[in-house]
Design a protein around this nucleic acid. Structure first.
Lengths: 204, 204
DNA sequence: TCAAAAATCATGCATTTATAGGATTGATCA
DNA sequence: TGATCAATCCTATAAATGCATGATTTTTGA
């Protein structure tokens, strides 16, 4: 019996590309596609699926949260994250949320099939490019709290501590605390590095 | 007669996706694909092509340079840039290098066909997301001098003005001048915004 | 329910950036 | 050859950030 796949991605090109790449293969069958999280959940409610390919960037909710939801509601469905880049940040977070693997969209046919096989057997699969940013990237991907993420985004938008404080209804010193924690977690010493890293990881 | 298309992209998924999306349409025919610049040039030498879809990120040379080469060697071939994100920087640079348009990979079928039609008629097409970053993004992409680029890169690497000064054998005040000019050219007011923008534009 | 984690606030000081206003030297180019 | 631009340097002040240290209150999860 062939592995039943659901693809969730809002890019028609990716949807078609994956379908096409997997079309002439007997091991797998693409049983459905969805372009947002709501449709994906709806599909899973009425269909049997072995592996769900989840795009990281969806219009309604992000892939990480969707992954969590899917694993909660449909524990038997294995999930495989789809992303444009090899962002280590996401890898660990997706795994934390129950994903069985991580696939870069630039993967070739064989890599994709290998991922499916691995995951179907209950294993993990991830093809992350470790070539780039090895020097500047933190060894472990920092786990950020809700507040830290908020502050990070506002910093990236060019707001100063006083402005962020006003925006979040907290004091400037608190903002600064979060900021220091961000610097610490990313293992950098100033805003420039912080933003560059965060941008590289797709966090902002 | 249908429009003859060459797709140049190193991502199998994109290649297949585009082919699949355009397959059942009589207006266009995908006459070839290439996964790098060399193959692309070779193909153009021995085949008639109306429009070449060029990925921005290729393994050998970048899409902007490839675009230039194609327009020089094959002036009749129209080029359409393919990119993952809507980076305004690239838009203008590609146009400067003779591209007839700019297509985001997340485009739908109709957008792609519309682009092909526009370009084939000798017009321009670009579907850039103007939703995001409208406030922070500069209207025109800043032209940076050699020195400014150097300073920008070093800022992004987390170096402070004194460190940059030491590195470039110039005074701190000069570094600061370049820095101020960068802020001015990018129309931002602090380092965070600067780096975010520059990162988004692929400059660092 | 109890410990850990997150979020909040504070003070003080050193360092860095941002802003403003110039000024000089070359190089380039029409 | 004269205008323009890049690159260099300066002073001076205001604003913001980085760093250290410590503390209280919520929240959260096992």
């Amino acid at each position: 019996m062939s592995v039943r796949i659901l693809i969730v991605d809002d890019h028609p090109m990716v949807l078609e590309g994956l379908k096409s790449l997997l079309a002439d293969n007997e091991e797998v069958t693409v049983v459905g596609t969805a372009s947002n999280a709501i449709d994906a959940i709806a599909f899973l409610k009425s269909n049997e699926v072995d592996i769900a390919f989840l795009d990281i960037n969806l219009p309604d909710i992000n892939g990480i949260d969707l992954c969590k939801k899917v694993k909660e509601q449909f524990p038997t469905v294995k999930t495989l994250a789809l992303s444009t880049f090899s962002e280590r940040a996401y890898v660990s977070r997706m795994i934390q949320n129950g994903a069985s693997g991580y696939l870069i969209k630039s993967s070739g046919k064989e890599e994709i099939l290998e991922a499916i096989r691995q995951v179907q057997l209950g294993g993990y699969f991830m093809n992350v490019n470790f070539d780039q940013n090895t020097a500047t990237a933190p060894k472990t991907v920092p786990f950020l709290t809700r507040r830290e993420k908020e502050v990070l985004v506002l910093i990236a938008e060019g707001m100063t501590n006083p402005q962020i404080a006003e925006q979040l209804f907290i004091s400037v010193t608190t903002v600064n605390s979060h900021r220091q924690n961000l610097l610490m977690k990313f293992e950098v010493s100033n805003t420039a590095s912080l933003i560059k890293l965060a941008a590289g990881l797709g966090l902002i």
